[in-house]
Design a protein around this nucleic acid. Structure first.
Length: 572
RNA sequence: CGGAGCGUAGCGCAGUCUGGUAGCGCGUUUGGUUCGGGACCAAAAGGCCGAGGGUUCAAAUCCCUCCGCUCCGACCA
């Protein structure tokens, strides 16, 4: 391919709306172009990388025994109503109607669609297990799209779904995908780590996210250097020692005017935040529940939602807080709330806690010397792990101290269970002619996001450093003297030889000065650069070097040996 | 949804406070000189100054409404 024939427009300046390096480079290197918030066109260069990532995924899925299909993006609402997710997905899903007013969604994922189709074809245990996948555009009405392809409204996703005869049998399907994912990310040149995760709205029992560690990542990960335990912050557990439990005198009121937050009351009373119990009122499926956590901790709403087994969970509004507790936010506590039968749950670290300070359920007052067991009505079974893990927490597996990292979620594997197969009555007959519900797993990779993750993980001040496997072109030939027929012939002959050898190559045949070509080659980040110029040829041949090598490592090789030398550099 | 900032040529920006009919750099086109890490000279093209309304002799600039984009936050008591 010739540069002058290709739609490439590199930029010198960073786009003003980009924050992180990978986003800036995507735009500067002419890989994508924003059309609107959260919507991007893949330009020819970006499209080539996107296709290469997709091709690797396809190969590894096929190798793992999955079968490719493709399902409509436009999905009838009735499928979503059948699973209950038409409501559960809420405003995250793009919804629309056809001219006959029939409602549809633009698919944010495809569990419903795939279950519906598999159920119609599979009826016997002889047909199982089965894993199908597609690489298809997905649509999500994100609250706040950002960072380019990282969180966009439309993105390319590989989604796979496995169907098995039993929960045990599903383990093998899960493991096959898990292993395939490790291969896929490794082949893309990524260091991706499997991380234990929550299952979100998809439901189910067990899941791993694959994360590329990066400062710019959107997700927090608790990581144990001791045993390798890694978990998304939504899920991460911690080990706690039993609270001290020293007996304390009866509680008494303290006047705390104008002190609402733990920070303010803590400063006012001159005691550390950890001496407090933070109490919040949530609306769980519309009903108030009070949640108590140590004063220096934050509630993990995902854990809370699971613990309460609630369909919806949000902080209670002003009115509900007042009605349930008797006070406004800032003075709420677990001792004798206004609503006597209010359910109160508490973090495990508070079990047996004494001498704590809590809101008095009376505006501008707190109580000190509270013994939770003695003074509150929290049931033993309502103590659970309900807080967000922090750096320094104790690993639930090995007892060592955990660290916090940031990651970009590029893949996710779920063991789903029967949530969808139940809803769709997707059953098979076993060898006794009995009908059983199929057990599902689902497995996603953000293909477009993976492209950006590669850039985020592999770039320097000059531009992208593509791994050869997913670079738009593996090789760039900088033709320095395009008007010199003899020099140009060397470049074009080499181009033909490389293409014949199955190596994709872009010849920079622009009439620009060398410096311009070098800068652009570094910016776009082709893994191998070949310089063909009169000066080099006079010195014995063409010059080759890898993008990640300093220019002092440039080697001159005889033209006849160029293909072999390039092959060798690509293989390193 | 709340708050803040920004919308001026393909890209990055100045001009807005203090109204006088639009400018700089990069990029693009043509000609010339150059030619190994973003050259130089000359000429040129390219703008409903986000949209609509208002004030004024006169609006990119002042006022109102709307739209879009970016960032922060979304009630942690």
């Amino acid at each position: 391919m010739k540069w002058t024939k290709m739609m490439i427009q590199t930029l010198r300046d960073d786009p003003q709306d980009a924050e992180i390096d990978s986003h800036k480079l995507l735009v500067r290197a002419s890989l994508v172009k924003k059309i609107s918030g959260g919507l991007y066109t893949f330009l020819p260069l970006g499209m080539r990388s996107l296709r290469k990532v997709a091709a690797i995924i396809r190969e590894e899925m096929d190798r793992a025994g999955a079968q490719e299909l493709v399902m409509p993006i436009l999905q009838p609402a009735e499928l979503w109503q059948q699973s209950g997710r038409w409501e559960a997905m809420g405003p995250n899903m793009f919804k629309l109607k056809d001219r006959a007013e029939k409602p549809y969604a633009l698919g944010p994922t495809a569990e419903e669609e795939v279950t519906d189709v598999v159920k119609s074809i599979v009826s016997s245990y002889r047909q199982l297990p089965i894993t199908v996948y597609q690489i298809q555009w997905k649509f999500r009405d994100e609250i706040r799209p950002r960072f380019g392809l990282m969180r966009s409204k439309e993105f390319l996703m590989k989604d796979a779904y496995s169907f098995d005869v039993s929960l045990d049998a599903a383990d093998a399907s899960y493991q096959a995908m898990y292993d395939a994912y490790k291969r896929i990310f490794a082949r893309c040149g990524l260091k991706a780590y499997p991380v234990e995760a929550d299952t979100g709205d998809i439901g189910g029992k067990f899941s791993h996210e694959f994360h590329v560690l990066a400062e710019a990542g959107e997700d927090g990960i608790a990581f144990c250097p001791g045993c390798g335990y890694a978990a998304n912050l939504e899920k991460a557990e911690r080990k706690v020692a039993a609270a001290a439990g020293e007996p304390c005198p009866a509680y008494e009121e303290v006047h705390t005017p104008n002190a609402k937050t733990i920070e303010q009351v803590s400063a006012f009373m001159g005691v550390p935040g950890s001496a407090f119990v933070k109490s919040l009122v949530y609306a769980a499926d519309g009903k108030p529940v009070m949640v108590c956590v140590p004063g220096d901790r934050d509630v993990n709403e995902v854990k809370l939602k699971h613990f309460l087994n609630a369909k919806t969970l949000e902080l209670a509004d002003y009115e509900m807080v007042l009605k349930a507790s008797g006070a406004n936010a800032g003075s709420v506590g677990p001792v004798k709330p206004a609503q006597a039968d209010l359910r109160i749950v508490a973090d495990q670290a508070l079990k047996g806690a004494t001498g704590r300070i809590v809101g008095a359920n009376k505006d501008d007052y707190h109580l000190k010397n509270v013994d939770l067991a003695r003074d509150t009505a929290i049931a033993d079974g309502d103590y659970a792990d309900l807080v967000i893990a922090q750096a320094g927490d104790v690993c639930p597996r090995c007892g060592k101290t955990m660290e916090l990292k940031r990651g970009i979620e590029v893949g996710h594997v779920f063991k789903l269970g029967t949530k969808y197969t139940d809803a769709f009555k997707a059953v098979y007959k076993n060898d006794q002619l009995q009908e059983n519900v199929m057990v599902m797993g689902c497995y996603g990779i953000g293909v477009s996001r993976t492209v950006q993750a590669v850039i985020e993980q592999s770039h320097d001040k000059d531009g992208i450093i593509w791994p050869a496997s997913v670079a738009p072109f593996q090789v760039v030939i900088d033709l320095l003297d395009p008007t010199d027929k003899a020099v140009a012939k060397v470049a074009f002959d080499l181009e033909a030889q490389l293409e014949a050898a199955g190596i994709d190559v872009l010849v920079d045949d622009r009439a620009d000065r060398p410096g311009v070509k070098f800068k652009d080659a570094d910016l776009i980040g082709f893994p191998v650069r070949v310089v063909v110029g009169a000066k080099g040829l006079a010195n014995g041949g063409v010059e080759v070097k890898r993008r990640d090598q300093d220019k002092s490592r440039m080697k001159i090789v005889p033209t006849a040996d160029a293909v072999a030398a390039i092959r060798e550099l690509l293989a390193q």
